[in-house]
Write a protein that binds this DNA or RNA. Structure first.
Lengths: 144, 144
DNA sequence: TATTGTTATACTCTATAACTATA
DNA sequence: TATAGTTATAGAGTATAACAATA
């Protein structure tokens, strides 16, 4: 009787689970909390705002939260002096959220933390890194 | 004057950011909430408990939370009838947390949701899936 | 009427500190 | 004295519903 391997061959499902484990194994939340006292969602907002001001609605859509959550979240960032609101020039209902200088600094520091690859990836064979990059490019264009 | 590409070559950092975007783009939290009314952390606990009972301490370590958070979390799962506590046979300070039948069912359904690969991955060339699986295996053994 | 932002409210998730019971 | 679990408390994060102002 031949022994069969316990692990299945590489199916999309198995690869998906492994991908998730690898990515979420790195605890970015703790790193961001320690460095900036902000969660990943707040840092994500700051980084998006680095490209220019956004309305509350746009922020909510960009980070997949509801409008009330955006209001509360921006309230907190504003209380910390990282963003500020101005009236929208074309529509008095809307408000534009801008980064302050402190917010721009926090966005840059947060981006640096989030861009720091884990050692396992840094130590990976450069050919594998290149292959991985190519496959990811194909995945990203594979919306369908 | 030659035009240089805007994107940098594939560095570990760029690959890391792309990996993260791909993985977290799928909103598992909403899917789990809709199907089971549980968050990813709770489902993760249920799935781990499917391998056998664990003490509160073991659960806390396994999902990287503090002991009080484990107590509160298990309280909630117990109130929903998904787990139950029994005294530890060897040590009266400890308690063992077991899945109930309902908990085992929820763990299975949660595992199915978490294992469901996104369309982009399902549609990926099987050779790329295999390559990706190999690279992930090398990454996982690359702890250093 | 529809849209933008807000307030009120509630629940989940997690952390720190202090406590109880047991080893 | 050290460990396992708990309680109390606090804050971040997000959701739903109801509301005000503006389009």
């Amino acid at each position: 009787m031949s022994t069969r391997p316990v692990t299945l061959p590489d199916t999309p499902s198995r690869v998906w689970v492994a991908l998730h484990e690898f990515v979420t194994g790195e605890d970015r939340r703790r790193a961001l909390r320690a460095a900036l006292d902000l969660g990943p969602g707040k840092v994500e907002v700051l980084i998006k705002l680095a490209d220019g001001p956004m309305t509350l609605r746009e922020i909510a859509r960009a980070v997949a939260i509801d409008p009330p959550a955006a209001t509360v979240g921006i309230d907190m960032l504003e209380a910390r002096g990282l963003v500020h609101r101005t009236p929208h020039p074309d529509d008095n209902r809307r408000k534009l959220v801008h980064l302050t200088d402190a917010g721009r600094d926090a966005a840059a520091r947060g981006h640096a933390i989030l861009s720091e690859p884990p050692p396992a990836l840094t130590n990976l064979d450069p050919d594998d890194v290149a292959r991985l990059g190519e496959i990811l490019t194909r995945l990203q264009t594979n919306t369908r």
